[in-house]
């Protein structure tokens, strides 16, 4: 059985349907990336998988049972979501933030068990934040801050982690740093990672499974090298491009057409529209 799937899922804002009658399965133990143009509903879909948005009809199933039937703390022990650019209260330290990931395991008498301590220290170590544990989150750089939030979801000890555009507002170095971290978590601990990414090339590089969201449903899904084509990009992003192969990773690479400076001596057919 697959851990996370949808059953005839329809999502809407008011009267407008964003996703209609969708059946999909999130492959367990893999990195899945949702791609699509702005406003296509990929974030909405991700949020509904994490029960942040109630479906209009249909259901999200976790381990075969509708997510709305689960006690919310039980869901929280199996799945964590990191929304887009969350904000920590001014002055909250990294340790105090990461601790909050232990919420589903705690009550007002049991506030800091040995297991809590082990998980929090482990989360700090794998995000390389142990040295910064007592620093306020708002004093950190963008990349460190995002790592702190990811550490919080790690402390939650879930098999599945959902992330809504975890690399937004980060420079290239930190984008790679965050994605490498998530890749390692999948590789070494077999965690299921589901995320929304804007950068198609990075999506192709890190995802085992790509889901192209378009027109209230899924246009295509599968291995990036099997589904990412010029036709797909044209339909999903309304953009012409050339798909080549990444010289380092062998994954598909999208070069958008459009205007731009041309270096003298460039072969003509490579930049023609």
């Amino acid at each position: 059985m697959q851990a996370l799937q949808t059953n005839a899922l329809t999502l809407s804002y008011g009267d407008r349907n964003i996703i209609e009658n969708l059946d999909m399965v999130v492959p367990a133990g893999k990195i899945t990336v949702f791609i699509g143009s702005n406003g296509c509903g990929k974030s909405t879909l991700l949020r509904s998988l994490a029960r942040l948005l109630k479906p209009k009809t249909g259901a999200v199933l976790l381990d075969g049972q509708a997510i709305s039937k689960w006690p919310t703390k039980e869901v929280a022990k199996r799945m964590a979501i990191l929304p887009q650019s969350p904000i920590a209260p001014e002055g909250l330290t990294v340790l105090q933030l990461v601790k909050q990931g232990r919420y589903p395991y705690q009550n007002w008498l049991q506030q800091w068990s040995e297991e809590d301590e082990k998980m929090v220290m482990g989360a700090l170590a794998s995000t390389r934040l142990t040295e910064l544990a007592d620093r306020p989150v708002d004093s950190l750089s963008g990349g460190q801050r995002q790592r702190a939030w990811i550490a919080m979801t790690l402390a939650q000890g879930t098999n599945t982690i959902l992330l809504d555009e975890p690399t937004t507002y980060l420079d290239m170095t930190h984008q790679i740093e965050i994605l490498d971290l998530l890749f390692e978590l999948n590789e070494q601990e077999g965690r299921t990672i589901v995320m929304v990414l804007h950068d198609l090339n990075l999506a192709c590089r890190y995802a085992h499974h790509i889901v192209a969201v378009h027109d209230q449903g899924i246009y295509a899904q599968g291995k990036p090298e099997e589904i990412i084509t010029e036709d797909l990009v044209r339909t999903v992003f309304q953009m012409d491009c050339q798909i080549t192969t990444d010289p380092l990773f062998g994954t598909p690479m999208c070069i958008p057409f459009g205007k731009g400076r041309k270096v003298v001596g460039m072969k003509k057919q490579m930049v023609s529209v």
Partner: peptide, 12 residues
Amino acid sequence: QLGSEIATSVGN
């Protein structure tokens, strides 16, 4: 204090 989405995510 971390926002309603994070609070939901951790099971509040």
